[in-house]
Write a protein that binds this DNA or RNA. Structure first.
Lengths: 354, 354
DNA sequence: TTGTAGGCGTTATCAA
DNA sequence: TTGATAACGCCTACAA
């Protein structure tokens, strides 16, 4: 019987009606009082006090589903990642973003719901998994490969959504992202200032915005510095195989004195660059300068700090929450770009007299 | 007006009633058909087909809030940690648990609500922060210092709660924990098998269950192996200061050939042990054998694998979810102990002929 | 100043 | 086989 199940399930979960009974008022009054009395209704202070006390005593917490259904808000923010949020391999995790998300959400009085729709346990690709997020007032999305169709549906229906990471292909989807263009340009400017005239970028063979933004910043800064020349960009599908000591020696012989690597999940490009330099019998930063457009992989954290920039992941998470709450309250999101801080590091130095 | 807001929110989002109208059936029939007809009601195939077709045509997707409200369960599990769930300082301390929690929750169709001790609900008053977890159907707790008073209140109210880590002092609180007693005993047995007759345990000066369990397993195994002797346990409040090369040399001179360290947050005991052995001019495993009751700190991951055991953190998280969902559905939790796998490692070897 | 009544979208019961 | 009808918990005009 429904009665039985309900009674069992809601055991220990008081409802407004019970608070009302205890306080000796109507359920409506409880709703008004606990709702902060936005309507400005004049209530007797005693009534208010009794209701609050009763709610406290019972440990009343509003049911999020009911709140949402009544066309009100939940104070729940969703987080949905297209891969598991906590994958076994820490290096693929969104943990650093969550640090900022959690802090900013808490500061603004929102609770966080982690929708597990796409973790390993769930039937992957289950269509409709995204719909669950509608339990929350709005949702943050992250991950490389988004189910565009489902997400589009949500956005078109006016559901507040913010993607962490630039995402232009979905019209109307708000996003926050790191300003890779500017951050990369700054790295190039620094190298130019150190006297480097020929700089090369090693990037993945992937057209993610994060990659193309870096390349754009790279090329623009080269042009501005008057360093445009032979094609300065290498796309490496398998960096370890392509960025060899021989390759590096050839570039060096041609006059290239600085190499810049894109940050990737595995850090493959950076690893290959380090190995190639060592294999070529060269030294950074005395012979060649190296820079990394992002952070080094965890297992290389002990090595000398790469010159480059840090992606402010926590700050991005916080900015995403601000954008989402902005969408929720004023209907408009704030500026989507977050600056990356330049990291001097110790892998770049003055260009050698060649 | 409420009408307006509701209308705006559900714009373009068909309801079962509309599917019913299009299919020429009642809304109930739609619910039954789309719900997979769990009740086994005999339906005319044509009816079913018409409903499905109408739903497809309209792009019907159920409203998660309404669904959860009607089901009288939100399928929301809380995860509460007294220190920030996403600590920046303590590197990923809860991360491994969350991996298992997320997977198991996803597999069972639950979403996660993330709470932190410092910020839950963002109320300025910290007291009562725990009450917010009632938003979820049940909650997982982790961390060393959970406020017992508040937690007791929840448990006494019949709120389903499971603690990750043994926690006996709170009557009626369910928990899951690693079987440190057995795992530690196994390490001692292995050392005994290698010929060690005198083994010492270095533990923290803290009475957390995780510590006392290890000590118990240690002593029991020693007794069973007939190796009981002078007090084999050292409590070190500041391992670095107490476990010195001189101290180690003295023990070695007394005939101690194997040292076992407890795993701690910082890995201080293990660090001190390694440093002391090196400082004493000894080598592991040729001179002395070392074992670690847990995993090494991240920055020592490159070093040789310590002999010892791995705490199955992900498995613990998963077990906690199973226990909690068991509480939610059948009212009873399953077996709380999870076995740790012995890790051979390379820091222990045959006892030297002394 | 407080209470009544209706509805949000879904599920489940029970009569037709 | 299908269709009223009543919850689920909360919010909010509106009446008292």
């Amino acid at each position: 019987m429904a009665e039985n199940r309900s009674a069992r399930v809601r055991r220990g979960r008081p409802r407004q009606a019970e608070v009302a009974r205890l306080a000796g008022v109507s359920q409506t009054t409880v709703s008004v009082v606990l709702g902060g009395n936005k309507q400005g209704i004049v209530l007797h202070p005693d009534t208010t006090a009794r209701v609050l006390e009763a709610a406290r005593e019972l440990g009343y917490v509003p049911d999020p589903a009911a709140r949402r259904l009544a066309a009100a808000r939940n104070n729940l923010l969703g987080v949905f990642s297209f891969t598991a949020t906590f994958p076994t391999a820490v290096e693929h995790s969104y943990y650093p973003f969550l640090v900022g998300v959690e802090q900013e959400a808490a500061a603004r009085g929102y609770d966080l719901v982690l929708f597990t729709g796409s973790s390993a346990g769930a039937q992957s690709g289950t269509s409709g998994a995204l719909e669950r997020v509608r339990l929350a007032d709005g949702c943050l999305f992250l991950g490389r490969h988004i189910p565009a169709g489902e997400l589009r549906r949500l956005v078109e229906h006016g559901y507040p959504a913010v993607h962490i990471g630039r995402r232009d292909e979905l019209d109307g989807l708000a996003w926050v992202g790191a300003d890779y263009v500017e951050a990369t340009a700054e790295v190039v400017r620094q190298l130019a200032k150190l006297g480097h005239r020929r700089v090369m970028l090693v990037r993945e063979d992937d057209d993610a915005p994060a990659s193309t933004d870096r390349e754009r910043g790279f090329r623009e800064a080269l042009a501005t510095a008057g360093l445009a020349g032979a094609d300065p960009v290498v796309r490496a599908a398998h960096p370890a195989a392509e960025i060899t000591p021989a390759w590096l020696r050839d570039r060096y012989a041609e006059g290239v004195t600085a190499f810049v690597a894109e940050e990737t999940d595995t850090g493959a490009a950076w690893r290959a660059l380090l190995a190639a330099v060592e294999g070529a019998g060269l030294d950074a930063p005395s012979d060649v300068s190296l820079a990394l457009l992002g952070s080094p992989p965890a297992d290389l954290a002990g090595r000398p700090q790469p010159t480059g920039f840090d992606i402010p992941r926590a700050e991005l998470g916080a900015a995403a929450v601000r954008a989402l709450t902005g969408l929720l309250t004023t209907g408009e999101a704030e500026s989507p770009l977050v600056a990356c801080a330049f990291r001097p590091g110790s892998t770049a130095g003055p260009a050698p007299v060649h």
